[in-house]
Amino acid sequence: MKSSERASEGLHSKPTFTREEVEQKILETLAEHGPLSIPEIATAIEMHPITVDQSCSRLLERGSIHPCARGIFGVSTPVEYQAEKDT
């Protein structure tokens, strides 16, 4: 086996996740552990902080998470639940 073949195998040995899977992992982690920072989320789900930051930006834009403090995020209450609660 050539060294380039071994190197390429090493690159693919770590599991890859879709954006949706990463975002779901983030939501589950925040729901279970409460508000967390980007580095705390990254450690909990074993992802790079940049990946977590980008995913959190998308989740924030959709309203799935909200900022609790500077750099700390929590899960937002679902809109459907808020609507049911108000009636």
Rank of each mutant, 00 (worst) to 15 (best):
P35Y: 13
P67Y: 12
I50E: 10
P35C: 14
L11N: 13
D53T: 05
S4V: 15
S55E: 12
L27F: 01
E9T: 08
V22M: 09
R62P: 01
R58Q: 01
E80W: 06
G71C: 05
C56L: 15
Q24I: 03
T16V: 10
I26Y: 00
S37E: 08
G74A: 15
V22L: 09
L30P: 00
L59Q: 00
E28K: 13
S13L: 04
R58A: 08
Q82E: 14
A7Q: 15
A42D: 01
I65T: 15
K2E: 14
C68N: 07
P15C: 03
A83T: 07
T29M: 00
L27R: 01
S37L: 01
I50Q: 08
F17E: 08
A69K: 12
T77E: 12
F17Q: 06
S4Q: 14
I45C: 00
A31C: 11
I65V: 14
K2I: 09
S55Q: 06
A44N: 12
I41G: 07
T87S: 05
R58G: 01
D53E: 13
E5N: 06
S4K: 13
H12D: 09
S55N: 03
L11G: 08
T51F: 02
T51Y: 02
A7M: 15
S55T: 04
V79F: 12
Q82L: 11
S37R: 05
K25H: 05
E46V: 04
I26K: 00
H12A: 14
S8Q: 13
I26M: 00
H48V: 10
T43K: 07
E28I: 04
R6D: 11
T29N: 00
F73P: 01
A44Q: 06
V22A: 00
V75M: 02
L30Y: 00
Q82H: 12
P49Q: 15
P49I: 04
G74S: 13
G34E: 06
T18W: 09
G74I: 10
S55A: 13
E9H: 06
H33F: 11
V22N: 02
E5G: 07
M1C: 14
H66N: 06
I50G: 02
A83Q: 07
E84R: 11
A31G: 13
V22K: 02
A69N: 13
E84W: 08
C68Q: 12
E84N: 07
P49G: 03
C68H: 14
L11P: 01
R70C: 07
T43P: 05
V75S: 09
S8W: 15
A83N: 07
E84I: 08
I45A: 01
M1P: 11
S76I: 04
T87P: 07
S76R: 04
H66A: 09
F73Q: 05
G74N: 04
K25F: 15
R6T: 04
E28C: 09
E40R: 07
C56Q: 06
A31M: 03
L11F: 11
E61H: 14
H12M: 09
L59R: 02
G71V: 09
G74K: 12
S4W: 10
K2M: 15
L27A: 05
Q24W: 01
L59T: 03
I72C: 13
P15A: 11
S13Y: 09
L11I: 04
T51I: 03
E28P: 05
R70D: 08
I38W: 05
A83L: 11
A69L: 11
V22W: 02
E80P: 08
E84P: 01
